[in-house]
Design a protein around this nucleic acid. Structure first.
Lengths: 350, 350
DNA sequence: ATTGACAACCAAAACGTTTTGGTAAAACAT
DNA sequence: ATGTTTTACCAAAACGTTTTGGTTGTCAAT
């Protein structure tokens, strides 16, 4: 009654070669997809490899080839650990990756970083000690020196997020600017004209992009940007948001809708409205970016625009495998959909 | 202007041995801590290894020794991906680990699992393909066949959580029963006697343990267990909780306090009270287990008992390194503290 | 002086692959 | 018929360690 050991009766390439009456070289090259093996032989090799559950020893293989077929990934704990919302998007991303990884037989090597210095160090270790040849670059800064570093080392990578300016590398990202426009269209169709925007500080790239979409939609609809309707909070702290929003709503009572750039500001908005006894979805409309947590936890729930984050992870892996084949760079923008939870009301046309 | 490559000018054990005028064997054994190397030699070796930033090629080392000094860890996405609250505790755990991993120079190998079958498979791959020699066993079931499997393969492991019954292996866990008792003491001191308990289904081990604490505290204080005050919800769905709690409060208006076994049931309780127009912290008291999310997002915030989850991760690594030295098993129970957020009121003594 | 134990070192084998630099046979071109 | 190219295969080296099975020299006990 051996639960597991029996399943992996040990089969190395030598035994496999002997069983097949082939040389080790041929077996290796058959499985490696080299062209100096006839198709009939290759099929036989693959069939037997499957039958005997042969899987090459990854250490031997990495050692011999100088590459490890391992995907490096650094988890920036310092950005995640205290931020429940980022955590959710993180898990959605790796869940997306995992669907592809399984089929592509890639392996995974993770490291942790508790601050920026550790983060950079981790990437260097991944490359020079672990010898990973693929990397998911996460937690992109507006300007990011890691990109040059990876290029110099000729490591294939996909960035999750973009730097500001020219992005001449492969990346996947949310279509932040576009989704802000979608939100604006949604509000304007419901006849909102005095639309406030609660942001976190703009040196987060996504926050900057979202604001751009807001501004360009205003312009397109010939609404003048009113800077009193715009809030920028340093930390992702709902209480700070709440007090700023409260002040704003008190002073500018003509505001009928608030766009919240993160879930934290959304929670702030809810608190502010509760304190002012404004009924959400009636006296005031609120719409937020993202919202996995708000949707289940916050009270009341909020209408939100959500991105297909799972696609991001999937695409990242797809791109990496495509990059193996040809040396192009690829990009992917995740689209977003509005999920109506009743926190936005339709105003009468004036 | 080389950002990174220069930092790791390549130094292997051969070059190091040549520089030191020693054999490769001696260098290896000096760094490995073997006793057939004199202390003076060892010091010299270590000094130079540091100076030249030598770090052994992990693939070569694993290949030669048959062990990889790598810690295996399977992320059960199927339990995490949709559950924001588990995510938070997950990150707290790995953040805890990361503080120790850095200092102990352990490496990390992660796999993902989207269901129980994949999960078990992942552990087998970790052992037989990746050749990890240490494992953090996560997502423990009440009865868990993986434990036998790991024992049979002589893999050192620490379980995060416990099976029911005899636990003759190393584990770290929350002190669930004790913290339920702490909560009960807290409520009873505030003169609550009609205390309801909103649980999720008891075949989660932690839910079972927490209920035990509740029951034994009742007994100790000579309060008879009233099964009408006890709710057990299948899924972690706030709305299901809400409707059950609402029904209960309507029928048994003598209830003055609700203990929520998870944050989800806490959100349910908040919703129920709002719908019944009962003011939390005044008309009714609510206290919840955990609460990283509730504390920032839920409205109002709730008094909660929180465990030092970061310690769990730290201890897990500590235990693994201790187990390397001597073959004992270790256990650790994380203590909990009540954080008062005003949702529990003091009743007048009758 | 001889023996045994011990300390400190080392050469070579082993780990399981990939890669290099071939060879033999078959196919094709002249 | 001969030279050339192509196809299909392989032996051996290499990857950078750890481990095995020693050797040599020193010291204490006899």
């Amino acid at each position: 009654m051996n639960i597991c050991v029996s399943k992996y009766y040990f089969m190395d390439i030598r035994k496999l070669a002997k069983k097949l009456n082939l040389s080790i070289t041929t077996v290796s090259r058959a499985l490696g997809g080299y062209s100096d093996v006839s198709e009939t032989t290759r099929k036989k090799v693959i069939k037997y490899a499957k039958k005997y559950k042969y899987s090459p020893n990854p250490n031997a293989s990495s050692l011999a080839s100088g590459k490890s077929n391992t995907l490096g990934f650094v988890i920036p704990l310092y950005g995640l650990n205290s931020n429940t919302l980022n955590q959710a998007s993180f898990f959605e991303f790796i869940a997306g990756m995992s669907t592809k990884i399984h089929s592509e037989n890639i392996q995974f090597f993770m490291m942790f970083a508790n601050n920026e210095k550790e983060e950079k160090n981790a990437y260097e270790k991944l490359i020079h000690v672990q010898k990973v040849n693929k990397i998911i670059l996460h937690n992109i800064k507006i300007k990011d020196s890691r990109i040059e570093m990876l290029k110099k080392n000729k490591i294939k990578f996909v960035a999750w997020g973009r730097t500001q300016g020219l992005n001449n590398y492969s990346w996947v990202d949310l279509d932040n600017e576009e989704s802000a426009k979608v939100i604006m269209k949604y509000l304007i169709e419901k006849n909102h004209r005095h639309i406030a925007y609660a942001n976190i500080e703009e040196n987060y790239n996504f926050a900057f992009q979202r604001k751009q979409g807001y501004l360009s939609s205003l312009k397109k609809n010939k609404i003048k940007f009113n800077e009193n309707y715009y809030i920028s909070i340093k930390n992702e702290d709902p209480d700070q948001s709440a007090s700023a929003i409260k002040k704003m709503l008190n002073k500018y009572s003509e505001i009928t809708a608030i766009i919240c750039s993160t879930e934290y500001s959304a929670v702030g908005a809810i608190k502010a409205c509760n304190q002012l006894n404004k009924k959400i979805g009636k006296d005031i409309s609120i719409i937020t970016f993202d919202g996995p947590v708000v949707s289940t936890i916050a009270n009341p729930s909020l209408t939100a625009i959500t991105h297909e984050r799972k696609n991001l992870g999937q695409k990242a892996i797809e791109i990496l495998t495509d990059m193996d084949k040809n040396n192009k760079t690829y990009t992917y923008l995740a689209k977003a959909n509005i999920i109506d939870r009743g926190s936005v009301c339709k105003l009468k046309k004036k």
